[in-house]
Design a protein around this nucleic acid. Structure first.
Length: 415
RNA sequence: GGAGAGGUGGCCGAGUGGUUGAAGGCGCACGCUUGGAAAGCGUGUAAACGGGAAACCGUUUCGAGGGUUCGAAUCCCUCUCUCUCCGCCA
């Protein structure tokens, strides 16, 4: 969410920057709604002041007049709330603006390759996909999952289930012990305003799974990522500056409808309605957002380096970034069966965009200011498992367990 | 699910109809004191929105929303959350 005053002052500039985010901002619509709203506010305030004076006078002769003003106020208030809602409807769907060093472009074709790590293994045989590898013992079982839950779910069994747990533990240990993230085990169901805070609502409601409780008209949602809960840990709060930065990590299931992606990645575990993800979130002073983004990226990269999986870093273009982001790096891991890199993490700085939505501030030296928020996958577990299985596969169909993972895998060398 | 008690500023905590945006304490900031620090003393310290170049001014806000009243933190209703006890339960 943007600052209203900034918006008013820099309309043309912001319109241009929103265009870079593929958002067509209607300036005159905004101005009409904004002016109408402000007109009603000042009208209301004048009446309120008048009424206040009358009641303070405690003069019985004024009481009738005061009653009349009350009626007028409630009528104008209704109009004002309607005007405010109309304005909010527009403001709430404006995406964040891209930082200066973000490449401008409509879509992923303008993304910028930053670096590559690791050497891509040359197989002496045709590498199998994770789906085929999982067919052994039926440990990645899509047949059963479709029976249970339909498409885009999976049942993992045996050593593959163990591998999932091992990867989660390995990542959590790395982030907590080496990088000072605080481990959190959060709720997976959250309130509507929490989803608003990080920007999933109102614009992306169709991607979310909604939960309805009995005897309540409140809507709740399954989290699409732990970013939602971890970032909102600081919602509606005022933090002392010496309590920053705060760094949180959580491994949670994530739930997504994946609306609009029908037909895409239908095979295998790449795109599921439910998947495990280890998520990193930082709450920082806004001036430190950039440094923290680099730090977060390096924490996520470290996981792939320890597992010796080749990856590349991509700086997303303005048009390819998520709604709340001001700058995003994707980490893409090498997938042998597809002969290409695929997204396994996305690390974003959101500046103060989410903090405004959440009402998250800190006491800085110059008064109370909104905090900066960042989030990144560290990493997506399902996709990491795919990368690991495929990159470490042997001709006989077995998969070699990397050294760092052995202690989490009951000391197995291979599966 | 039953019974009770609560939700006040960054935090704790007074406050039961009229300058209460709100005592007191803690915290924080600045100053004095000190060789330096701590302690001590003094001063200051809510937010949102609107107007203004700014100083500043105005309105709102005591969990949320309604109601009573000329006037509500204070009275009434609904909702919500927290705590305690009982029941049930992984």
């Amino acid at each position: 969410m943007h600052n209203n005053k900034d918006l008013r002052k820099n309309l043309e500039n912001i319109k241009k920057k929103l265009k870079d985010r593929n958002f067509d901002f209607d300036i005159s619509l905004f101005q009409n709604l904004d002016e109408n709203n402000r007109k009603l506010i000042s009208k209301k305030e004048k009446l309120e002041q008048e009424k206040k004076l009358l009641s303070k006078s405690k003069d019985k002769n004024n009481f009738e007049k005061s009653k009349e003003i009350s009626k007028e106020i409630s009528k104008i208030s209704e109009d004002q709330i309607i005007a405010q809602n109309k304005l909010n409807k527009l403001l709430h769907i404006l995406p964040n603006l891209a930082l200066e060093d973000v490449p401008i472009g409509k879509d992923e074709r303008s993304n910028k390759l930053i670096e590559q790590f690791g050497t891509i293994k040359k197989f002496s045989f045709k590498p199998k996909s994770h789906v085929d590898i999982g067919l052994k013992n039926n440990d990645i079982d899509f047949e059963t999952s479709s029976k249970l839950s339909g498409s885009r779910f999976v049942v993992l069994k045996n050593k593959i289930a163990l591998l999932e747990r091992a990867l989660i533990n390995f990542m959590l240990d790395t982030h907590t012990l080496e990088f000072e993230y605080i481990e959190v085990s959060p709720p997976l169901i959250v309130n509507e305003d929490v989803m608003f805070g990080t920007g999933q609502l109102p614009k992306f409601e169709e991607d979310q799974f909604q939960i309805k409780f009995e005897n309540s008209d409140q809507r709740k949602f399954l989290i699409p990522t732990a970013e939602v809960v971890l970032t909102n840990l600081v919602r509606n709060s005022l933090i002392d500056y010496n309590q920053l930065p705060q760094r949180y990590v959580a491994a949670t299931p994530c739930f997504r409808k994946e609306a609009g992606s029908y037909g895409k990645d239908t095979k295998g575990m790449i795109r599921q309605h439910q998947f495990q993800k280890v998520e990193l979130v930082s709450i920082v002073e806004p001036k430190n957002c950039n440094a923290e983004l680099e730090r977060m990226l390096s924490c996520a990269k470290k996981i792939l380096e320890k597992l010796d999986i080749p990856y590349q870093i991509v700086l997303l273009s303005s048009g390819d970034m998520g709604f709340s982001a001001e700058k995003t790096y994707d980490i893409e891991a090498w997938i042998p069966s597809e002969n290409k890199f695929r997204e396994i993490s996305s690390c974003s700085s959101c500046g103060t965009f989410q903090a405004r939505r959440m009402g998250a501030k800190y006491k800085s030296q110059n008064g109370n200011e909104f905090v900066g928020t960042l989030n990144g996958s560290g990493l997506a577990v399902g996709r990491l498992m795919i990368a690991l299985l495929e990159n470490n596969q042997n001709e006989d169909g077995s998969v070699t367990i990397p050294n760092v993972l052995k202690k989490y895998m009951n000391n197995l060398d291979k599966i």
